[in-house]
Write a protein that binds this DNA or RNA. Structure first.
Lengths: 196, 196
DNA sequence: TTTAAGTTTGACAAAAATGTTAAACAAAAG
DNA sequence: CTTTTGTTTAACATTTTTGTCAAACTTAAA
């Protein structure tokens, strides 16, 4: 069997993910990945065959991680409001850790002209849109195209973390200040979505 | 004098910007840029000395373009509400044309570990924050940390265009559908910011 | 303690991307 | 028309990045 398992394979992949998703180093070379992981570059080829293969794995992992997060929240049997509160908390925690994960997915899609994906899940999304529509009828949230509701939600959660380096400069804030602002933000987004 | 001007220099830079800002091809090589522009790759070196120099110019242009847009809107003497309506219209039109411009700035910053920038403009931003605070006192917009107000605004405008490839898949929409959704969105963002 | 298997390393090879140069070319000035 | 100057091209050189391979190493099983 494939015994031994020194953890090197995982180490390399995790280091790559950290460079891509956390540090936003979307141009990182195999050398940079290996150096950051503290291993010989050849091991990238030993474990992943090629740079492209590593990228493919990371790309698919990123998609899966994103879907798993959403599924866990969406498929829960909480009430809508609780569900949203939970979503904001879980998603933003991950976004604070890996602000550039979606970005990595998108730039890889653009790089390879990928125009479709397993991410679709038409039924699930439609179910979600319907649930949102029902809440609008009930009057818990403002009436609008339910797609805009989702887009607003994810925009408000994700974008400020993508643009963190810029925002820190613009608002003259240090890392700690900005983290506080993002924590405070969870509540704010919830209140924006459920007005009054 | 430096006469002649065949427009090649501009052509190359514009092509690069289009690849980076519009198509999100953040990894584009000089060869790809030259091919897309339909010119010999050597001309990139002839006009810009090096790849890095071209990137630098594009990077600084991107910053300037962004600042100019904001200045034009912010420095106008419109009433606050009109100003915001105008900002949404102008910014989203540009975001529809160049969805990845801010992204390019950010990834370049991450790539070179840049942690400050001419973009700061502390006085101007503080003025804006104060203006927003005053509007909150007046009751035209919901009370919150004014920074969140700005972050919300730009998130709702910019993010859906960055994630367009993903959203089209998730919502099962074609390009035209999505453009309509974004047009419709201008009004929605305005109404979200100025509730009721 | 040998043996066998996976793991790690360094030297080398190949490929990709960038940079340089001299010569060909084209258009305006003399 | 020819000279001058800026522009474009192709061939070549360099650098950077990626990939391969055999030998050294390490650990678990025989």
């Amino acid at each position: 069997m494939t015994a031994r398992d020194t953890g090197t394979e995982q180490l390399i992949k995790n280091t790559a993910k950290n460079l891509f998703f956390a540090e936003g180093k979307l141009h990182a070379t195999t050398q940079e990945i290996a150096d950051t992981a503290g291993v010989n570059r050849t091991l990238v080829n030993y474990y992943f065959r090629s740079r492209d293969a590593l990228f493919d794995q990371v790309f698919h992992d990123a998609q899966k991680e994103l879907l798993d997060l959403l599924d866990e929240v969406i498929d829960s049997d909480m009430a809508f409001k609780e569900k949203m509160k939970n979503l904001i908390d879980v998603f933003m925690n991950q976004a604070m850790q890996f602000p550039y994960r979606e970005l990595f997915i998108i730039t890889e899609m653009n790089r390879h002209d990928i125009i479709e994906s397993k991410i679709a899940r038409v039924e699930k999304v439609n179910g979600m849109l319907q649930e949102i529509g029902a809440e609008m009828e009930k009057g818990t949230i403002r009436k609008m195209n339910p797609r805009h509701f989702l887009i607003n939600l994810f925009s408000m959660m994700a974008y400020p973390l993508v643009t963190a380096p810029l925002n820190k400069i613009i608002f003259n804030m240090n890392d700690q200040d900005y983290t506080s602002l993002m924590e405070e933000r969870k509540k704010l987004i919830f209140e924006t979505i459920f007005p009054q």
